[in-house]
Design a protein around this nucleic acid. Structure first.
Length: 223
DNA sequence: AGCCACGTACAG
DNA sequence: CTGTACGTGGCT
């Protein structure tokens, strides 16, 4: 199979999981989307917990009874909800919430000047720097890294984006992240569930792309 | 809706 | 600084 000379290997950017932020703790990483708890679906959760999408959209994310409960996590669970944009009712103040019985305080999760271990994925869309400001964010979203286009390594070299790379500044249309394609009206939420126990620290990354997809496409990934 | 061009965020 | 690529707006 011949590719045009302009085609080149893509950088293989790891998925934006927060584990990369963990100094010294990321010894159980895996790559790709080898989901754990694969039998779990959002439908299960929604049904069992009596939640509806509308509930969530109306009330924001009630973290006190969402991920921790659904995962059956041990005490001391820290839950963080990464905000969304597109007008969905999740205020900046909910970027970081805790469900913990230690009553400990955690600093907010800022992209711009986060320092060490705060798990704060680069995929967070629409986060305003510093978690404030009312205007639309200028933050660019990043490719999910796990969808088929993202996994594609080679530019086709013939699509409009490839042909017009110099002026178009666009990635090959066959490598355009599925998540980035659907922006209008879509909702993105990311939940981090940090499980602390005396012996272990396990990080979980709960990532759902949109409420409308919750029934079928929730991925629960251990990192 | 797709293409195109431009501005610019972001990473190296 | 440079290259890549996201966001957006105009055009067809």
């Amino acid at each position: 199979m011949n590719f045009p000379q302009s085609a080149k290997l893509a950088r293989i950017t790891p998925p934006m999981f927060p584990g990369g932020r963990l100094g010294g703790q990321e010894t159980h990483h895996h790559h790709g989307n080898n989901n754990f708890l694969s039998s779990y679906t959002a439908t299960d959760h929604m049904t069992k917990q009596g939640h509806t999408h509308q509930d969530m959209l109306t009330n924001g994310v009630n973290m006190s009874n969402f991920p921790a409960g659904m995962l059956g996590l041990p005490p001391g669970v820290i839950v963080m909800a990464m905000g969304s944009h597109n007008g969905v009712n999740i205020p900046d103040s909910s970027h970081f919430q805790m469900a913990t019985n230690h009553n400990q305080m955690l600093s907010d999760c800022h992209h711009a000047n986060q320092t060490t271990s705060s798990p704060c994925p680069s995929t967070s869309p629409g986060m305003t720097s510093g978690g404030q400001g009312s205007g639309a964010s200028k933050r660019k979203r990043k490719r999910c890294g796990v969808c088929a286009p993202c996994r594609r390594l080679i530019n086709c070299g013939v699509c409009s984006a490839c042909r017009n790379r110099k002026t178009g500044h666009q990635i090959c249309k066959f490598r355009k992240c599925d998540e980035l394609k659907k922006k209008a009206g879509s909702v993105q939420l990311e939940f981090f569930v940090v499980v602390h126990s005396p012996q272990t620290i396990a990080w979980y990354f709960f990532h759902c792309n949109s409420y409308s997809k919750l029934d079928t496409a929730v991925r629960l990934t251990r990192i």
